[in-house]
Simulated scan of single mutants.
Amino acid sequence: MPSLLSNRLAKRVLRPAFALVEQRMERATTALQSDLDALHHAVADLRRQSYGLGLLLDQAGRDGHRMPTATQVDTLVREVRAVTGDGGERARHDITVAYRHLVALEALGAGDLAGTVSDVCGRLTTVPLLAPPNGDVLEIGTRHGLFAAALQRMLRRDGIEARLTIVDPLDGSPTREDVVRGNLVLGGGSGAAEAARLVRGGFGDTAVRERVADRRYGVIVVNGEHDLAAVRELAAPDAVVVLGDQPRPAGLTGLGRVAESVYCRAA
């Protein structure tokens, strides 16, 4: 039996239908090609933006990248609220501000801030929310002074003008005094770098501890393992003490953990 499509009469009858199908296919193909072209341009734009963002936020020259996920931020908000008792949106707002400080200071300063995004932003957010009893801040062990500068800025937002004391060997590996003082300028305020007291030496040195024992500190940030009994003696009543995961002596009440840091309140 001959094919229907080879029949001259059938082809004449079906020609309008074929033409309609071809037109519709052509329109669909044209629309699909337009969508593909638009998608190609969008992907190219995203790649350009991603490359530029990566130059600013990737891990080159520091401990890790500075691109938190929404899940990481949500977790950080929960941890900060658990330690500070914040029941509103203050924690999330301050974490956002802390993140902007982190990015800005690493872009402008020499060196970087030690730690993950969550730990750095957690410290910068939690310390002010715990309402330190005074503005005297002791940092034991510093990297390049950028964390101290960032903490100055975060405390100032709460009306506390930080008076910094930094204890560190400042032996150039990696910490140099000129770099630290230059970075402290980024903390803002009146004479921020000059007002900061840099005490050269290790905290285990009795002479160093005697030099910094002229006041009681409202905030003490302990980087590394140090004598926490000696740290406690320098803390003002109700001081905020930030440290790593190590046994605490009497007189330091644990408040909880945010990221990799443990927060305590001094008796």
Rank of each mutant, 00 (worst) to 15 (best):
16 P>T: 06
17 A>T: 11
20 L>W: 10
20 L>M: 08
21 V>M: 15
22 E>S: 13
26 E>S: 12
26 E>H: 08
26 E>K: 13
27 R>H: 12
27 R>P: 05
28 A>H: 04
31 A>V: 07
33 Q>I: 05
35 D>P: 00
35 D>W: 08
37 D>M: 13
37 D>P: 03
40 H>D: 15
40 H>A: 14
42 A>V: 02
43 V>S: 05
43 V>K: 07
45 D>G: 03
45 D>M: 06
46 L>M: 13
49 Q>C: 03
50 S>H: 05
51 Y>C: 04
53 L>H: 04
54 G>R: 00
54 G>I: 00
55 L>R: 10
56 L>R: 08
57 L>D: 01
62 R>A: 01
63 D>K: 02
66 R>Y: 00
69 T>V: 03
69 T>M: 05
70 A>N: 07
71 T>Y: 15
73 V>G: 06
73 V>D: 04
73 V>Q: 09
75 T>A: 11
76 L>H: 07
77 V>Q: 09
79 E>S: 07
80 V>K: 06
80 V>I: 12
81 R>T: 01
83 V>C: 06
84 T>G: 02
85 G>R: 06
85 G>Y: 09
86 D>H: 09
86 D>G: 07
87 G>W: 07
87 G>H: 12
89 E>Q: 13
91 A>W: 08
91 A>V: 11
93 H>G: 04
94 D>G: 01
94 D>H: 14
95 I>A: 03
97 V>D: 11
97 V>M: 13
